[in-house]
Write a protein that binds this DNA or RNA. Structure first.
Lengths: 129, 129, 129, 129
DNA sequence: GTGGTCTAGACCACA
DNA sequence: GTGGTCTAGACCACT
């Protein structure tokens, strides 16, 4: 079952964090079309937030075409990013993890690394608009 | 002179984006103690936002001990993360860029990459609490 | 419910007066962790000031770790100076009140007394840095 | 020669602090009619502030009838609060110092004491409007 | 209905 | 001209 989590200091409103996590999981292939998301009640209880906040996130997912609620049954993932095959993705991820380990050993703390990664990603987006 | 920019769809409130960008730049060594940030009015004009929004960001930076406003003079960076030396950082960055290029060539779009990176960073933080 | 008040001619900006009053009340044990502060709107209406001014005070209290806003619920005191017990404090306060009465009877007006007290407090701080 | 000082976290604007300190000193008999205040340049240099700020304070003192600038000669105290005689005042001050020592020994830190004193003074003013 | 963000514009304190 | 405070009012996120 898919699990949500909160990033504390990010400033992103809770309902959006839920949305972004589903989107990210779909992009990573962790969630596939037809998978069932946890119920509103489960999420609300598990994360100690108001059920309405979860509902808002699920509504937003519907709006984006990423999920669909089937009354009485639950909410299900609708779309599937047919990106890389599993093997290729694992390979890339391994490379990234290796880089992270190097950075960590060089003395960067996770926030430093996040800053560096964020800057590099920003450059990437500028080069590939 | 330091330059700000906005990420549109992130959901992070504008004033927080300014704060995070300064913090990131300090972590990356792009801003050092004593450096002057652009004036409130310059930022407000340049980014087409209200001066009060900028002021709020600068006040938050002050609260975090990262900057200090000197009335009549401007706002100045206070702290300096004396992390890695320039050479080491450049080396790491190069490695990261290389990985990004590989991922890009493998067919991932920037959002896919961001998702993968985000997941890896999350794992990193969990392993290094 | 905690009540705010304004000192007119002090020159201290209104939002800071609110902050200082909460801090003082916490130090005096009048406010304890978990106590709910009046809502932004109540304060704004009661003191005839703008809600944003109150909000700014509450945000500053949050920065100082003295209070925490819970959206939809209100703002709550976070910290508690576990200083003297109630009895000891009352005893000291009685002694102070006695001294004040003496000073008053000797012909000092409140402003004179405030000046004397302020000087004595300043000396105290210099001796106990 | 009279000396100024700054209270950091009070929130009172610098020029007002200067004004209040002269007023307080006059009330305490530390400054008497005819006493010469330090020159604008001396104050500005000694406190590392802009001469204009000092000028504004001296202008405000003139406005309140507490001091008078004599061009080319300096600024001089004009008024004198003919309050208590020296002996009586010393006696009262001794009593206050004694109380402060008691409070200090009871374990209150200067800020706690200031909070208590502030509350007592406020009560005093309410009883003697 | 609660706190939080943003905008718009006036005014003040400081250099 | 620079940062800082206050006001007024709109809109959003959360309970």
């Amino acid at each position: 079952m898919f699990r949500f989590r909160f990033e504390g200091g990010s400033g992103v409103p809770p309902y959006l964090q839920l949305v972004q996590q589903v989107e990210r999981a779909v992009r990573l292939g962790e969630l596939r079309a037809g998978d069932r998301l946890p119920t509103v009640k489960e999420v609300a209880a598990g994360m100690v937030i108001n059920p309405n906040t979860v509902l808002k996130a699920y509504r937003e997912l519907e709006h984006r075409g990423l999920a669909k609620g089937r009354p009485g049954k639950g909410t299900f993932v609708e779309r599937e990013f047919t990106g890389l095959d599993e093997e290729k993705r694992a390979e890339l991820r391994a490379g990234l993890t290796e880089w992270l380990t190097t950075a960590r050993r060089a003395g960067m703390d996770p926030d430093d690394i996040a800053a560096l990664v964020s800057a590099a990603l920003h450059d990437l987006r500028e080069e590939n608009p």
